[in-house]
Each structure stands twice: as C-alpha cells, then as structure tokens.
Design a protein around this nucleic acid. Structure first.
Lengths: 252, 252
DNA sequence: CATTGCAGTGAACGCTGTTCACCGTGAACG
DNA sequence: CGTTCACGGTGAACAGCGTTCACTGCAATG
C-alpha cells in the first residue's frame, strides 16, 4: 500500500531550512525545466518531449513523474518560470535608471520586452501565442498572485502605467461615459488592483497593452514578413512606441 | 521501376475539364481537409493527426499519403484553405453594402474579422498564433500570389485601406522623413503593391494592421482574461476600432 | 537497527508519423 | 478488344511518443 498520508515534515512546514532531500528535489526540478527549455528553443513546444527531457538530464522517462504529474503540468511550470524570467528582465529595464524621466523608462521597458521576445521566440510563442489546450489555461485563470507568476509580468506594466498616468493624467472617459458592459466587466479587475487609477484609465491601460502586444507579437510571429521580409522591425517599433507615448500624453 | 515520367494528361494540361480521376482526387482532398478541420476544432493542432483524419474519411493512414506528402504539408494546405475562407468572409463583409460610407464598411469588416476569430479560435490560432516550425513558414514567405492564398487575406485590408486613404488622405510622413532603415525595408513591398499609396501611408497601414491584430489576437488567445475574466470584449473592441478610425482621420 | 518513503528502472500499452511491399481497379493506349 | 500501367488503398512494420505499473535500491527517519 502506498501511504495515503505523507508524513508532514515539521521543518519545511514551518518554512525553515528545507531538508537535504527537498533541496535535491528542487534542484532536480530546476534542471528538468532547464532541459525542457533547451528543447523548446530547439524546436518549439512540440519538441518538448518527456523522453527527450529525461535523457537530457540523464534519467529515464518514468523518473520524471516524480517531479511533474505529466507533460502538460511540466509545460505549465515552464510557462511560470518563463513569466518569472521575463518579469525580472522588465523590472531590471524599468528600474535601470530610476531618475530618468518616466517616458524614457517606459520606452526602455518596452524595448526590453521586444528584445526578449525576439531573442526568445519559442518561449515568447509559448507564453503569448495561441493557448495550448491543457496548459496555459490554468495559469491565466488562477487569480492567486503567489502561485500565478504570470501576474508579476502584468504588474510591472501596471505599476509603470499607474505612475505614468499619475504624473500625466491624460484625460480619460468618466466611468459613467463608458459602455455599461465594459464598465461592469472591468469593475472586478479595478477592485483587484486597488483602484490605483480611475476606471477610464484602465481602459486606456488595456488599449496600451493591446497595442504593445500587437507590435511585439506580429514581429515575433512573423506576421509582418509580408511587408518586411524577415527584416528587423525596430524602426517600425520605434514609431509605434512613439504613437503609444503620444496616446499617454507624453510629448517629446 | 516506378515510372519517372508521369504521362502528361493533355486535357488537364490545357486546363480544360479535369479528368474523372482528377475530380475524384480533388474531392477526396477536400474531404480530408474538412476532416482535418473538424479535428482542429475539437482539440487544436495537436489533435490533427494523420490516423485520426484517415479513420474519419474511412481509409487507413498510409492512404493519406496519396494526397499529401505528410502531416506538415497537410497542415499547410489546411492553413491555405482557412486563409481563403477568412478572405471570403472579409470580402463579403466589406462589400455587403457598397454604398455605405467607407468608415462603416471598414468597421463592419473589422468586426467580421473579430467575429470569425472568436467563432473559430483553433483555426485563428493556427493562422495567427506562433508559427509551427515546419508549417506556416513556407506560406508566409512564398511571394507567388496565386499559390499564396494568405495574400488574399492581406489584400482585402490593403484595398480597403488604400481606398480609405484616397478618400481621406490623413497626413503621413514624407518618404524622406522616415527612418532610413524603415524606408529601405518597405520599398520592396511598396513596389509590390504598385505604390497605390505613398510610402508613409504604408507605415500607417502596418500600424493599423498591428493594432487590429493586437485587438483580435489578445481576445481570441485569452490574453485579456486577466482583466476581463473570460468576458466578451466587444465593448472594448468597439472603443479600439474607434481609436483606429480616428487615426485614419475618420471623425464621426 | 528497522522502517518507511523517495528516486529511478524496465517492461508494457496504446498512441503517433512514416515507409514499404503489395493488391485490385479503372483509365489509357496499341 | 486486350494489355499495360498508374493510382487508391491496405497491412505490416519501425521508431518514437505519453503514461502506468511493479519493482529495486538507497537514504533519511523513528
């Protein structure tokens, strides 16, 4: 009989020093995710195969099931770690020069986002492409900010936008002027972020995110190739970010 | 020995009535693509499996290789047919009321694009998500307008934009004012479309496409769920299209 | 020291894409 | 009209996929 009740480790439960075993487990898990990412880079999510990862870390396929409940869970964890890395990159870019004008910090962060996407296209595709049926779903829905590390990615933009809007309160529609459906849909999120900006500014925020996403995703996915022929769209991106800054009331 | 030279059918070579065999072949091919699409809808591109399609059309897996050189080619053909269908949908929307003001026709077409995307998320994901390593690549690069049916999709927007810009020549930067890199990158495409609009307007066109893509893709892929919680983003989309119309100089 | 739980293995199942030798039928040609 | 030949389709096979299960050691625990 497999023990239905695992013995509660009093040490780790009190979140004191983790056991040797726990450290080894975490290290192995990290190594597995690292190998998974290598395969992701090699040939997209399709190539991220359980047996491939296993051989890469020097064990057999069933051994991986000690660390992940299956391939989908593994991909989900990979997504989380990638979100984490991306958030770190963006935070670093945003706070690289804390005394610079906010517009410049916004631009630097946006360019860092684009840079990460282009230098990590398979990872970007996994995070921001079409959702894979059993994988991303759980991540985006899970509202727990501790577990949902994708939220950290959103937060860097939200904080940046909130500060930006506070310094430059470009006129936004009043809550009453908004489409009633839109107003109702957004109130929950508005509460969730502590109403740091008025509801109308949330719409502006979403609009900015959509534009930024469009600019980065179209290039990273090759949906600009019909006109740019595999070229670097940095110049175009620069223009688009200028537009975005103008929309935020940041004249130069 | 397999005959290295297939007998040239003089009838089909002159593109007269196709042979009975050819008709049967084309019909089977269409039925296969139809089955592939059903599987795509059921569970994304992953579920589009050679054996699954085969059983659906009532033959065995190797039989499919008489119609497609492999799974990737089949998916590529599926992409082409979907592009074709989408282009038809958009053309129909655009020309539904040819006497309506262009702004309205532009909005109707945009909403038709969003509608198709939301009602056919798996198909939209295949066409406009992250490219699948062996599949989409060939399509986007192939510049032959006859073979590349994805171009038809782009053309409906280009024609609409060109007409829109001709009626409402919103000021665009002169070619000399553009970033030299951007100008050089776009000249080939500019030639390709016969310079129906000035180069500066092409930049505006790309900017509009990026914004439209962002609006539709973020919603279809669930990248707005963090704020909208699986809700219908039609109200937000309406706002975004208003912005886009404003950018095109279409006041209301 | 004994026990328990965990890491890892090898075999197995049903699935995948793809290739091969083969078979029958129907269309084309002498 | 009879022959030939290309094509549609099959069954077996191969390698690889995700996953489960019974099993073995080893290391930490009581």
């Amino acid at each position: 009989m497999l023990g239905a009740m695992t013995t509660v480790n009093p040490v780790s439960a009190e979140r004191s020093q983790p056991t040797r075993r726990e450290r080894a487990h975490a290290a192995a898990q990290a190594e597995i995710l690292q190998a998974a990412r290598r395969l992701l880079i090699e040939g997209g999510a399709e190539r991220v195969t359980v047996r491939g990862i296993a051989t890469e870390v020097g064990i057999t396929a069933p051994g991986l099931y000690r660390y992940f409940s299956g391939r989908e869970a593994l991909l989900g964890e990979l997504c989380s770690s990638l979100y984490d890395e991306l958030a770190d990159v963006l935070y670093e870019a945003r706070d690289r020069d804390p005394d610079a004008p906010l517009k410049q910090r916004f631009l630097v962060t946006s360019f860092a986002f684009r840079k990460w996407a282009l230098e990590h296209r398979p990872e970007f595709g996994l995070l921001f492409g079409a959702p894979i049926p059993g994988v991303l779903v759980d991540i985006h829905i899970d509202p727990d900010p501790a577990a949902n590390r994708g939220m950290r990615f959103g937060q860097v933009w939200l904080e940046l936008f909130a500060e930006l809007w506070r310094q430059h309160p470009v006129p936004v529609p009043d809550a009453d002027e908004l489409d009633p459906r839109l107003r109702e849909q957004l109130t929950e999120y508005h509460e969730q972020i502590g109403r740091i900006v008025p509801l109308g500014a949330v719409v502006l925020y979403l609009s900015c995110w959509i534009q930024l996403y469009g600019a980065v995703a179209t290039e990273a996915f090759g949906h600009l190739n019909f006109a740019l022929h595999d070229g670097d769209a940095e110049a175009l991106f620069h223009d688009l970010m200028g537009e975005l800054a103008a929309k935020l009331g940041l004249t130069h």
